[in-house]
């Protein structure tokens, strides 16, 4: 049994190709040396703001906390020409609260589901959570894959579960969290990306992390997934979207990720239907940098309304 499953992972790697860790890290280091000035910087900052899934995922979340998060998502900064964030991302129990505030706006409600972040619940429980969240009005569902099954080589089980969650989503967009830090190798991240993409619909997402483990989105795992999306798109014509999440706290980091998108997937992915950031404190740093670009002066952090620091 073990031999057979090992062989299936090996076969999958042969099928989708391998990743050289040293090489990919050299590639992404080049993104960090790009120098953005003036208009191009402002464009990047605003674009990044429009791509945020403004997130709170804490045990202490309340309806009140979610309400203030929603207001921040709609109007990130009073009096500043800056777009709303793409979505608000909450636990499934908070979906109905978020929905109340976001109905009629262009900010989507995203819900983590499937026993986030571990995914260690029976499949029927996970599916029930997805249905409940969609029933409460979630536009988007962020699921976690079964990493245990992946690492024991039961790749078809991983894929089947994704398909079943997809079915439970109905019209809601699905984001598949690979939890890259638990897959550990770049080869595994590439395999998991293809496993997911082969059952997803155009416009569904693959996502790096839950934000709940020690290592989250990095330029390296982002790049592996962008290249997987590119190869899959060129092979099938199906555009899959991408969401790095966790650990992206500064405007500078966000710009590096966007440069990777620009130079890997091109212009068609430079919008919030194809690319998102799972982040919270990132928003205020973007606002601070936008303010600086517009006025030439840095404002103190307390001049910006509270963004959740939960991620």
């Amino acid at each position: 049994m073990l031999l057979k499953s090992h062989a299936s992972l090996r076969r999958f790697i042969d099928d989708v190709g391998t990743v050289d860790a040293v090489g990919i890290e050299e590639r992404v280091a080049k993104f960090t040396t790009r120098s953005l000035k003036k208009k191009s910087k402002l464009f990047g900052l605003k674009l990044a703001a429009s791509m945020i899934d403004l997130t709170t995922l804490e045990g202490k979340d309340t309806a009140g906390k979610v309400a203030s998060l929603c207001k921040k998502a709609i109007t990130p900064h009073e009096g500043m020409d800056v777009p709303s964030t793409a979505a608000v991302c909450v636990y499934s129990s908070m979906v109905r609260h978020a929905k109340r505030h976001l109905v009629g706006t262009n900010v989507k409600v995203a819900s983590v589901a499937t026993a986030f972040p571990s995914g260690q619940a029976p499949l029927r429980t996970r599916l029930a959570e997805v249905r409940a969240a969609v029933g409460d009005g979630a536009d988007e569902i962020d699921m976690v894959i079964n990493r245990g099954a992946f690492l024991t080589g039961e790749l078809s089980l991983v894929q089947d579960e994704i398909s079943q969650v997809l079915e439970a989503c109905g019209d809601a967009t699905l984001k598949v969290i690979l939890e890259t830090s638990e897959l550990e190798t770049y080869d595994n991240i590439r395999v998991a990306s293809f496993l997911a993409m082969r059952v997803l619909r155009p416009g569904d997402f693959v996502k790096t992390s839950t934000g709940k483990t020690s290592a989250n989105a990095t330029l390296g795992n982002n790049q592996v997934m962008l290249e997987a999306i590119r190869d899959f798109y060129l092979e099938t014509g199906i555009p899959i979207s991408m969401k790095p999440a966790g650990g992206i706290r500064t405007a500078k980091q966000a710009l590096h990720f966007l440069i990777a998108v620009k130079e890997t997937l091109g212009d068609a992915w430079l919008n919030n239907t194809r690319y998102r950031f799972g982040a919270s404190s990132l928003l205020n740093d973007l606002l601070r940098q936008i303010e600086k670009e517009l006025t030439g002066a840095y404002q103190a952090p307390w001049n910006f309304s509270d963004a959740t620091e939960g991620y």
């Binding site: 953005l36 191009s40 990047g44 091109g266 212009d267």
Partner: peptide, 9 residues
């Protein structure tokens, strides 16, 4: 893929 001028540096 389109590598155009949407975001020129």
């Amino acid at each position: 893929l389109v590598f155009g001028d949407l975001w020129e540096f």
